[in-house]
Amino acid sequence: MALDTHPLNSLGFAKPPAETRVVVAMSGGVDSSVVAAQLAEEGYDVVGVTLQLYDHGAALAKKGACCAGIDIHDARRVAEQMGFPHYVLDYENIFRDAVIEEFADSYLGGATPVPCIRCNERVKFKDLLETARDLDADCMATGHYIQRKIGAHGPELHCAADAGRDQSYFLFSTTPEQLDYLRFPLGHLPSKAATRALAEKYGLSVADKPDSQDICFVPDGNYAGVIEKLRPGAAEPGEIVHADGRVLGRHTGVIHYTIGQRRGLGIGGLTDPLYVVKLDVDTRRVVVGPKDMLATRVVPIREINWLGDSPFDSQKEWHVSVKVRSTRPPREAIIRPLSATAAQVELMTPEEGVSPGQACVFYQTDNSRILGGGWIWRGA
């Protein structure tokens, strides 16, 4: 007797949506709210989960900063409206240990960290994903703008259809095992306007909610202020020095500067523009120089997560495109593996402002596939 096989549903499972449980990571914003509402309307067994990661009041050391509370409230309202259960999990300790502490240490070490990547890697796609498994979910869905496609060797990570919303830079460390379990229902949409149109269609109260622009635990954009609260005494003064050795002035702390910075150096009266080219934490010196000193061609990276079909170190060279900053388009490059998790990346066109602590993300040159990436760990 032939077995009755059910066609694949929209999440890729051979069973009806009602028998498919999906945990949706809900931030309280419009993107994840639309994902949850859409899946609920399609008949899936949706469970919404919101993580309480930080206390804005503590982060800013002022009263009335209740943004985190508002986000949780907004997520809960969507769940109530669409008729699925919603849970709030206290992940403050995990988030502080896995993300905020490293952010502070990296900044104090003269790096330019990207905590959103670490949050996806160490909290959302690790601890939350395990929670989804504990809830017997078939998969976990998020509101990220990225695509998951099935290739010849299994699930592949691809850029979002809307290049302006693409979040691949922040998701390069997603492992093959995680990718097998994750779903990204918004990745194929042509624009953010299309997402907001869906929010209107479902009558969601967050349809017009503005996008968050800053790092969640630095809602006012003042990184140095947060670092000083996390590491009292960290902002020690020092010298601003030209690359040729001249002392040009004083600063109030290395943490106030980033590689490539031009404005706000406090060394006016010079004819030629100067940029921060190096942060010397040991001597508390901010080194400045002309723009051409920022150009970097060879970038050392480590902690590589590889999403290619054959082992990373099975070839001497990989000809790819790479991003060394989230805001820059991919550029042609050659990756030369040093081990399974370390490499040197040679940029065919030198990039300015390449900084330790940033990510270097790999892309296939002939299509939208993301091949992984790693962390820039020191100047070339």
Rank of each mutant, 00 (worst) to 15 (best):
G268S: 14
D272T: 10
G253A: 01
G268R: 12
I240E: 08
G260F: 06
D244S: 08
H256P: 04
G268A: 14
G268L: 10
A234D: 02
T252P: 00
L230T: 01
L270M: 07
G269M: 02
K229P: 00
Q261I: 09
R263S: 13
R284D: 13
T283E: 13
Y275G: 01
A235M: 04
G269F: 03
P232A: 04
V277K: 05
T258E: 12
G266R: 11
R285M: 11
R284Q: 15
E228G: 00
R263G: 13
T283I: 04
G245I: 05
L248E: 12
V281G: 01
V254W: 00
L265V: 10
A235I: 07
A235K: 04
D282K: 14
L270D: 03
D280A: 11
R231E: 04
R246K: 14
V276L: 07
L248R: 11
I255R: 04
D280P: 06
V281Q: 03
R246M: 11
R262V: 01
G264T: 12
D282Q: 13
E239R: 14
T283N: 13
R284Y: 08
E239P: 00
V247S: 11
Q261E: 11
P237N: 03
P237S: 09
P232Y: 07
D282V: 14
T252H: 12
T258A: 11
D272R: 07
D244E: 09
H256A: 06
Q261R: 07
D280L: 09
H251K: 08
V281T: 15
H256W: 08
R250P: 00
Y257F: 15
T271G: 00
G266Q: 11
V277E: 06
H251R: 07
G238R: 07
G233A: 02
T252W: 00
V276Q: 06
Y275P: 00
H256E: 12
G260L: 04
L270C: 02
T252Q: 14
G266K: 10
T283H: 12
G268M: 08
L265G: 06
V241K: 10
G249M: 12
I240A: 06
Y275E: 01
K229F: 03
T283P: 00
H256N: 15
I267L: 09
K278T: 13
I267A: 05
R262H: 15
Y275K: 01
R285W: 05
R262L: 04
G253E: 02
G266Y: 10
K229E: 03
R262G: 05
Y257K: 02
R250W: 08
R231A: 05
V254S: 02
P232I: 09
I259M: 09
P273Q: 01
L274Y: 06
D244I: 02
I255Y: 05
L230G: 01
L265N: 05
K229D: 03
G238V: 12
R262N: 12
I240P: 07
G253Y: 01
V247N: 07
V241W: 04
T271H: 10
P232M: 05
R285D: 12
G249F: 11
R284T: 14
L265K: 05
T283C: 05
H251A: 07
V241N: 06
Y275F: 15
